[in-house]
Design a protein around this nucleic acid. Structure first.
Length: 270
DNA sequence: TCAAGATGATCAG
DNA sequence: TGATCCTCTTGAT
């Protein structure tokens, strides 16, 4: 259940575990058997992420494209190799470890042309040094949809999911239903800069921590606020609980099928 | 033991 | 906008 920083870490972990080695590729579940056969015995040349997409390039010019979706997982384990349990779509076995892919929304072999097509459709990724935030602003600024909906749109920002959306909007004190066309360049730049920092921290730690001592005055520190995803957050999944800053109840609402969280006092509508 | 929900995206209408 | 796909965890019974 990843956001962009998780995919970034996963790509690095896969590169470390399998990069430069021939892998054994199987589909214990059977749904990916034909494609797995094309990868079996091939050398993994590189593993990279873009937004929430993962790309593994092999020495036969095939690229494995994976999108974990809401529920997918790609778990790397150390040898010895255990028998697969549950629904393992793809298993890669390397010299000293193996990785099991489950529940992915997308798992396919693609060419360089298709790779370019996927990348073209993505907005700027805050984790990539070559990202151009102005492209995201252009999409945001000409849309009447809410900033809450637009932050989840991967054509606007690649890699941002429900947690980063809720937390970055809280930290910017922006109401999630503010129309995108009313987001100024200055506000957009502040949002972008914050997401770059938050997601880079997520890459380092593997957690989404939005409440950190260096971000908030000592007086605001109270009891630990760890969500079950493993990080400290202000509003995500805290509906009905008091806001850590002002004490009013955190609100929630379904927006385009996803839960939205915000504090109506700290994030007033303008 | 079982149903609901979840860090997501796509497609049809 | 709603239905659908995918798997696992959590919480209710």
């Amino acid at each position: 259940m990843p956001e962009g920083h998780t995919l970034y870490r996963l790509a690095a972990d896969l590169q470390r575990a399998f990069g430069g080695h021939a892998v054994v590729a199987k589909s214990p579940q059977g749904r990916f058997s034909e494609s797995a056969a094309l990868l079996d015995g091939r050398v993994l040349e590189s593993a990279e992420s873009a937004g929430k997409h993962l790309f593994l390039r092999f020495d036969n010019d095939l690229i494995l494209h994976v999108h974990l979706g809401l529920i997918g997982g790609f778990r790397i384990s150390s040898a010895p190799v255990e028998p697969p349990f549950g629904e393992v779509r793809l298993r890669l076995v390397g010299p000293s470890s193996y990785a099991d892919l489950r529940g992915a929304t997308r798992c396919e072999l693609i060419s360089d042309e298709k790779l370019d097509l996927v990348l073209t459709r993505l907005g700027p990724d805050p984790l990539r040094a070559d990202a151009d935030p102005d492209r995201g602003f252009a999409r945001m600024h000409r849309s009447g949809k809410s900033v809450g909906a637009l932050l989840m749109d991967q054509r606007v920002l690649a890699g941002v999911g429900n947690i980063f959306r809720a937390e970055s909007l809280f930290r910017a004190r922006l109401h999630p239903l503010t129309p995108g066309e009313r987001i100024t360049k200055r506000r957009w730049n502040a949002l972008w800069t914050d997401l770059v920092a938050l997601m880079a921290y997520g890459v380092q730690t593997g957690r989404i921590d939005t409440v950190r001592p260096e971000h908030e005055p000592e007086a605001m520190r109270r009891e630990p606020r760890v969500d079950r995803h493993g990080g400290e957050v202000y509003v995500y999944r805290r509906s009905g609980q008091p806001c850590h800053v002002c004490g009013s109840k955190v609100k929630t609402q379904l927006l385009e099928g996803r839960n939205l969280y915000w504090c109506s006092v700290c994030q007033r509508r303008r």
